[in-house]
Design a protein around this nucleic acid. Sequence first.
DNA 1: TGACATCGTTCATAATGTGAACTATATTTA
DNA 2: TAAATATAGTTCACATTATGAACGATGTCA
Lengths: 159, 159
Amino acid sequence: MNDVNTTNDVRVLEYQANKLQELISELHNCCKERYSHEAKAFKMPQAELRCLMLFEGHKYLTGIQIAGLLEVAKSRATVIIENLDKKGMVQRSQDPNDARVKLINLTPAGQRKVREIEEFMFALHQQLLDQIDPGQRTGVITALETLRSSMEAVKAQLA
Amino acid sequence: MNDVNTTNDVRVLEYQANKLQELISELHNCCKERYSHEAKAFKMPQAELRCLMLFEGHKYLTGIQIAGLLEVAKSRATVIIENLDKKGMVQRSQDPNDARVKLINLTPAGQRKVREIEEFMFALHQQLLDQIDPGQRTGVITALETLRSSMEAVKAQLA
DNA sequence: TGACATCGTTCATAATGTGAACTATATTTA
DNA sequence: TAAATATAGTTCACATTATGAACGATGTCA
């Protein structure tokens, strides 16, 4: 009896681990498609869109902050900022307190673009919510929070 | 009273849409990190790993099938297959029934690599499952399935 | 048989990203 | 205070991921 249960438990764990793998992979693919769709809609590279969105709640950011938030090398951040500058979306200026630092901020055109992207993203997620049965919405969000913490715990274990 | 409820409903929807956006974005980042970690662990580009895994359940695949399964252009598939060939992981041969087609299959080295990757991925998802409270596992999987269908429904609407 | 479609390849191009080397500043320490 | 060290940003070489057009070799169908 105990043996049978143990065997069953192992099978359930196996099934659930495989199911998780499959579902997470599919969600990841869906997101990839979504981001590429967004980039086409705004006719801008994904990296530049992500960079613009960092300014929500920040008047100024430095290059190193942007690199940290985007989780890329600072050399990559330099290029992204340069391209946004060329497009007139951001401005660079010297930090009066530290001559090494450049302060980056949105231009009015950049601010408009951020609002457009926000609206686009919000509409998309409203649509997603619409597709979820109202009674299940809280459950889905709670489950995602559980999954997120668990994934971060695994990441911490590996590091 | 009705006005108050309507206003509340809108606020809840707004909150939930934003929460979904945040959670999905975080999960996506977690996955990206995971895939890049995997690629480093196996000292192979992600695209090649993904390609190898397509052979689970297939003895032979054609270039066009691989492009379709990886969701990339066929020119991209050619390059990935070429690199796997150079590494001795796959072989190319002529399809006896159609001279245009090349049949691609795993070499023994490729088969060994696939098993290694499978074990690695399975262990990782077992670890993830370990982090989820046993009572919540079914709920998390069900919620992910709901989310997946909803995301696919939105995608279908957009197309 | 000719028109058209398909499979794989090659090439030009673009986006995303890293790491090392370098310049110009700050900061810390001997 | 002078020297060692650290930090911010830039530049460059390189790798990976990806697309689309053009092309040759074949296959299919009217």
